[in-house]
Design a protein around this nucleic acid. Structure first.
Lengths: 67, 67
DNA sequence: GCAATATGTAAAAAGTATTTGACATATTAC
DNA sequence: GTAATATGTCAAATACTTTTTACATATTGC
């Protein structure tokens, strides 16, 4: 699973900290997800896509086999 | 978080068992998710939406506050 | 260069998702 | 109405996500 979080976040000119706050998670969680340490829960995937004005299906790229 | 899995699955006339097999999970997992016992991981949400020929954003309804 | 802000990372603890195996009830087909 | 198929549920074990606290490095503005 890959994602466009960093790209869209930078377009919006907000920090990991600000995005984390909008999603009610910690900065470390956003950082880990941007760096593909693990996948977010489905609920967090929705919060992230809402905060970044996009859709879960656009924000995440599911590649079939895990990476 | 709610979802339309049961509805779409029945439209496709497949059992929980068959859907589970398509998604590489157990029947119990599909059953639990249909009955809102817990949310799937993001990867499973993608597999379910692909197996049901739809999108994650269409298959799941994120209601902001948890239920 | 210095201060402030932003990002990367790590370990322990708590919470959540999934599997396995098993049993019970419901539904359908004949 | 009996057999077969489908669904609901439970408990224990394993794996994964998130928080907290803390420190290190990078980037930016002045």
């Amino acid at each position: 699973m890959k994602n466009n979080i960093r790209f869209i976040r930078k377009e919006m000119k907000i920090s990991q900290e600000e995005l984390a706050h909008k999603c009610d998670v910690t900065r470390q969680t956003v950082n880990a997800i941007e760096n593909n340490k693990y996948d977010p829960t489905l609920a967090l995937a929705f919060k992230l896509s809402i905060s970044l004005n996009t859709k879960v299906d656009n924000l995440f790229i599911f590649g079939g086999e895990e990476e």
